[in-house]
Computed example of a mutant assay.
Amino acid sequence: MVKYFTTKCDINAAWDHVVSAFWQRYPNPFSTHVLTEDVVYREVTTDHRLLSRRLLTKTNRLPRWAEHFFPAGMSRSVYIVEDSIVDPISRSLTTYTWNLNHTTLMSVEERCVFRDSAEQPGATQLKREAWITSGIYGFSRPIQEFGLARFKSNQVRAMKGLEYALSNLQGETPQRLLRGSVKETSDVAKGAPQSLASTASTTQNPQHYV
């Protein structure tokens, strides 16, 4: 089974400001676990969408019980692929991220959609979804529970980092810019998105576009 989690919130900033801050959110004092970020692919399509693929290296301290699942000498760093589409026509930014290594222990797939808020003029709505799975027989449920708790903690820091980047762009003191709701569905069979290709069919490389 898959642990599914979703949140929705409004960011009190215009969509174009949020998109600009998204590209400038690292480094920030709330995301010191993000070690590196590299653009490995970028293209502007004929319909003016910006497609990007980035590789990020992150580290998180493992709980003591998880050390038993890691062979001696195995890297504790996590390599993350982030695919994104900026569509200036529909004013949306869609991102899809997943981890490349340690997938037997835990796989975390995340999709975020930033678009103009329908309820708050001048604000940006963010919908975030995550799918957490584990392939460790007999321990998948507690590992998924741990992964969900870690994911929530990391997203709090991620949003503080985005607020920090927005404040820097606007020349303001960091402030609370978010208001929203959280919905969690435990142990559901709701599948993660297969790829980004369905909405970026004009490009063949890379093959995973949301």
Rank of each mutant, 00 (worst) to 15 (best):
H208E: 07
T6P: 01
S84K: 07
H17Y: 00
A165S: 15
N205G: 01
Q204T: 13
T59M: 02
V34F: 05
K3L: 14
Q155S: 02
E67D: 12
W98R: 10
Y41L: 02
T185C: 09
D187A: 10
E145N: 10
P27N: 11
N101H: 03
E129F: 04
R176H: 14
W98F: 15
G73R: 15
K58R: 07
S107G: 02
C112V: 01
R141I: 06
W131T: 04
T32C: 00
I143K: 08
F5Q: 00
W131Q: 05
T36Y: 00
S117T: 11
S181C: 02
G147W: 08
S31C: 06
R176N: 15
A13R: 00
T95N: 06
G122D: 00
W65T: 10
K3A: 05
L93W: 08
Q120N: 14
A66I: 09
Q155M: 12
T32G: 05
N168P: 01
N205F: 08
T32S: 10
L51W: 02
T203A: 13
M106N: 02
D87I: 13
A14V: 00
V81A: 07
V210L: 15
S20I: 01
W23Y: 15
I85Y: 04
F139L: 15
F139V: 06
Y164Q: 12
P27T: 05
D87F: 09
S181E: 10
D87M: 11
L166Q: 08
R64N: 09
E43G: 04
T104W: 00
V39L: 04
K58A: 10
E110T: 14
S195G: 11
P63S: 15
